[in-house]
Write a protein that binds this DNA or RNA. Structure first.
Lengths: 209, 209
DNA sequence: AACTTAATGTTGCAATTGCAACATTATTGA
DNA sequence: TCAATAATGTTGCAATTGCAACATTAAGTT
């Protein structure tokens, strides 16, 4: 994990947040951030609690775009939040910090060495996000549900270094992530089990090939 | 467009490149960068010419991942280049600059104000890349070829501010981008024309709805 | 515990798609 | 210019998928 304030002590964190005129905010459970603020040109940081970015399609669908835990960074730089389609919902009482994104560019704080550290951390976070997106694209470009599943499992297995992996989310959410029908995915998983490709027990999956 | 050296004069560009111990390289036409260098932990910049990032699938497929023109930035931070699956090919004689990516993090050059400008530019480039990826994901998660096409056309039209748009690439490449079979896409486009949804003349497409 | 709500599993069926095979039209390079 | 190569267009057909409708199980709430 990479944190926005990695290698920056509490005191300098405070200074940075002051320089950037950042705002502290506490979101009560189930409240949408955009009922409190209107701008979306911020860089957000989750101090404590959990957020969820949810998209409401014009056709009425409701999909989870991203789950945000402690230390997660969010905002329009990372996930498109413009338009009224998006909601940022607190899954529990959540404390966040908002930094006006334009401020990051406007001024020159290079004289503060800790600010440079901050920028480097931000850079690392962004490159990780690109990597994450590239992985998802890699998966989404596979043409069958089976190949999407296998590609995804392969990635998880590689990350964990074993043939046994634990899904980081539910099957319903997995289907969303792969952009396939949940039922069709369920059927395909059944076939894969029957053919001996994989073993599944709840969220633990073992690759047999 | 955002350039890595925007608002940085030639002299300071030189200083930055020296600080980062960057390498100048000229790639002859049709040569793969990885036949010349082996590391992939660099940030690349196209000075003149054109590059293409190509992926050779394990099943023998060859797909264009990205086209890089003058001023384009590339490297593993942006597109996964590890593994022998990838090639960076010069489409014509191309001059590039390679910056060891780790150097960006290792040292603290914050005392040089132009370096800070450089970092800000890099940041902007990265956020644009994330935006680009998010757009593609948005498209790829649509479930039918028609909806993928419409989403893509909508985005282009929005960008151009008109109902008439020009495809930035060939139909063959478009099918790759949407991750669908070219023939199936061609058929779907025909239906859409017949139903009066769109008009097509070569790469100019007009939305009729 | 009892109830509500969410997640998962199952299946028939129609719609969509990929694939293959081929024809036609553009584009490129010698 | 003209041959070679690449891009585009077309279509039958089988495979894959989404959708709908429902049953079952798990998780959360009071």
């Amino acid at each position: 994990m990479n944190y926005l304030f990695e290698n920056i002590n509490a005191r300098n964190q405070g200074k940075i947040l002051k320089l950037l005129e950042s705002e502290y905010l506490t979101l009560p459970k189930n409240v949408n951030l955009f009922t409190i603020i209107s701008s979306d040109s911020f860089l957000g940081l989750v101090r404590t609690g959990k957020l969820q970015i949810v998209k409401n399609d014009y056709s009425g669908n409701r999909t989870i775009v991203e789950d945000l835990e402690e230390n997660a960074v969010f905002g329009s730089i990372i996930t498109n939040l413009n338009s009224t389609e998006y909601e940022v919902i607190a899954k529990e009482e959540t404390k966040i910090i908002l930094i006006d994104y334009n401020r990051l560019y406007q001024n020159d704080y290079s004289k503060y060495e800790y600010y440079n550290e901050f920028m480097k951390n931000l850079l690392k976070i962004l490159t990780d996000k690109i990597e994450e997106r590239n992985q998802r694209i890699e998966i989404l470009t596979k043409k069958t549900i089976r190949n999407k599943l296998l590609e995804y499992f392969r990635m998880l297995a590689k990350k964990m270094g074993t043939r046994t992996l634990y899904l980081p989310f539910s099957f319903t959410e997995l289907a969303d992530y792969l952009a396939v029908d949940r039922c069709a995915m369920s059927r395909e998983l059944k076939y894969m089990k029957e053919e001996g490709f994989i073993k599944i027990s709840s969220r633990r999956i073992t690759l047999m090939y």
